Simulated assay, not measured.
Amino acid sequence: MIDWLDPNREFISHRLYRDTCTRSSGGHHHKDLTVTGRRLDRSVVIDDHPELYGKHRQNVIPVSSLHGDPRDVETLLKVQSFFELERSFKDMRYQSRKVWRYLNSLLFSPPRCLLPLSDQKTLFLDLDHTLIVSLEEPPTEKFAAGDQIMLRFMEETLYVIKRPGVEQLLRSAIASNYEIVIFTAGTKLYASPVIDWLDPNREFISHRLYRDACTITIDGKCLKDLSVTGRRLDRSVVIDDSPTVYGKHRENVIPVSPFHGDPGDVELLNILWFFEFEKQFKDLRLAVKNY
């Protein structure tokens, strides 16, 4: 593949493959820049997985994952801007941070109004550790056949377990005249088949927002900005195990503890009464506050 990208070997000087990565105890691969023989203050990385670089994230200009969109010019624009601006800095790590903040504010925030207009109330649901958990090893606990599935993702096998109460939550939201939107920091390649499994007949989930709808910070974290979704904040509720990713919109979030595969988990079941409770409030943020 690299030969195809650079058939005349004009551009790429060296190639480092999987065998140069550090493998963690959990089987994940990490890219350690200290073993490359290159000065960190003279090194810049462009990668859609900045978390792989650990303590060297400050060297990384993160980009969203490419899924075949011919209109995707994010990496091109970032690289062009970087090479124009980095000359004034001796330490490229500092410049990569400055460029990323600048470009993120001007060019790479998600487009406003991500969803088609709707006058319904909106329930935003996170996916990983809120509705499901994905494990690299078969679960030790026993679950019903319909509550777990095995998926192939990239080169790995994942064992996906549905959190108890997911179907009841979806049905209760629909019965209370909510539209349901999955808002996940996962990529479409990973999350889409999981959502298809949760809602095979597309009865409940109206829309799906993936990682490319998130705002990526300098250290590679995904923030979920409700203001760009096209939904009224006073008509929106979020259920997520990471309320901090909503920033100034945390008042819309009903936090849940992360799901790790406990078949006795009752977090979602305990939320069901919210749909009756919130009817006394015009502003759903007040309902969440008093919940």
Rank of each mutant, 00 (worst) to 15 (best):
R112C: 09
L127Y: 04
S134A: 13
L151I: 14
E156F: 06
Y94N: 03
V160K: 01
F108C: 01
M150Q: 15
D119T: 15
T157Q: 14
C113Q: 15
A144N: 13
I161K: 06
T130P: 01
M150T: 14
Y94M: 02
N104D: 11
Y159W: 14
M150I: 15
P116C: 06
M154K: 13
K98S: 02
S134T: 13
K142C: 06
E137H: 13
F153I: 10
F153A: 06
L117V: 10
T122W: 03
P110R: 05
Q120E: 13
V133G: 01
S105F: 05
L107F: 12
L125F: 04
G146D: 14
K142I: 13
E141K: 06
N104V: 05
Q148C: 05
Q148R: 08
P111N: 10
E137I: 11
R93N: 15
L151A: 01
I132M: 05
L106I: 13
Y159P: 07
W100S: 04
E137G: 00
M92R: 10
P110L: 05
Q120L: 08
K98A: 08
P138D: 12
E155L: 02
R112T: 14
S105A: 06
M150H: 08
T122M: 07
Q148E: 11
E137C: 04
G146C: 06
P111I: 09
L125A: 00
A144S: 12
S118M: 08
E156S: 12
M150N: 10
T157P: 04
E156D: 13
A144M: 08
E155Q: 10
N104Q: 13
I132H: 01
P110F: 05
Y94G: 03
E141W: 11
E136L: 07
M154Y: 08
L107M: 12
C113I: 12
Y102W: 04
L115T: 08
W100V: 03
E156L: 10
M154R: 14
H129F: 02
M154E: 15
L115C: 09
S96V: 14
Q148F: 11
R112V: 15
F108Y: 04
D147C: 05
Q148K: 07
S134W: 11
S96Y: 03
E137R: 14
F153H: 11
Q95M: 13
L107C: 10
K142G: 00
E156V: 10
L127G: 00
L115H: 09
L103A: 10
L107Q: 11
Y102Q: 11
I161A: 01
H129S: 11
E136H: 02
M150Y: 00
R101L: 10
T140R: 14
E155G: 04
K142H: 06
M150R: 15
E136C: 00
L114G: 04
Q95T: 14
C113D: 15
R101Q: 15
M92D: 02
D119H: 09
F153W: 12
D126V: 06
L131E: 02
E141N: 12
K142W: 05
L103K: 05
F124P: 00
V160M: 03
E137P: 00
R97I: 15
I161T: 10
R112G: 08
S134P: 01
Y159K: 03
S109D: 06
K98P: 00
V160N: 00
L114F: 02
L114H: 09
F108G: 04
Y94I: 14
N104P: 03
